[in-house]
Amino acid sequence: MGKVIKYERDNIDTDVILPGTYLKLHDYDEIAKHAMEGIDPNFHARVKKGDFIVAGKNFGCGSSREHAPIALSHCGIKAVLALSFARIFYRNAVDGAFLLPIEIDEAAYKKISENDELEINTDKNEIKNLTKNETYPMKPFSDIISKIIAAGGLFKYKPD
């Protein structure tokens, strides 16, 4: 269970999630202090453990910096719910076991509001909005992605 921080925009890129000047940092908690600084300098102060980000399409486009999912997960973000994801952000989030990248549809994207409380059930592919008492579908993870998530990241995953 966690609250929603919503950005109603597409193409939230890695320069926004963790600006280039901080790429020199490799301490995860230090990185986290600058999460979302590009568009939301107050993010680090207001985010709580277990919160969710909700955003439009192509979330995480841009660079391959693993700093992006690291910054978000070390702030406490459990999952990003977006219309779609850029590929490197998606695989970094899963292979490094930092957070869940969850694809939602337009209807859910419109209905979920800032501060709504959500609960995610990946077994049922369901998102429950406890504030509005609504349920939305999430796009099921592909076979390999579910297995890597279940294993706890790529290093713990044993290929068939």
Binding site: E66, P69, D95
Partner: peptide, 20 residues
């Protein structure tokens, strides 16, 4: 193809990586 740190670390140790 570009990859993140975890994936590159995996390649450095195993010499292979998954692709769709």
């Amino acid at each position: 193809c570009g990859l993140g740190h975890t994936d590159v670390a995996y390649v450095l140790l195993n010499g292979k990586i998954w692709f769709k």
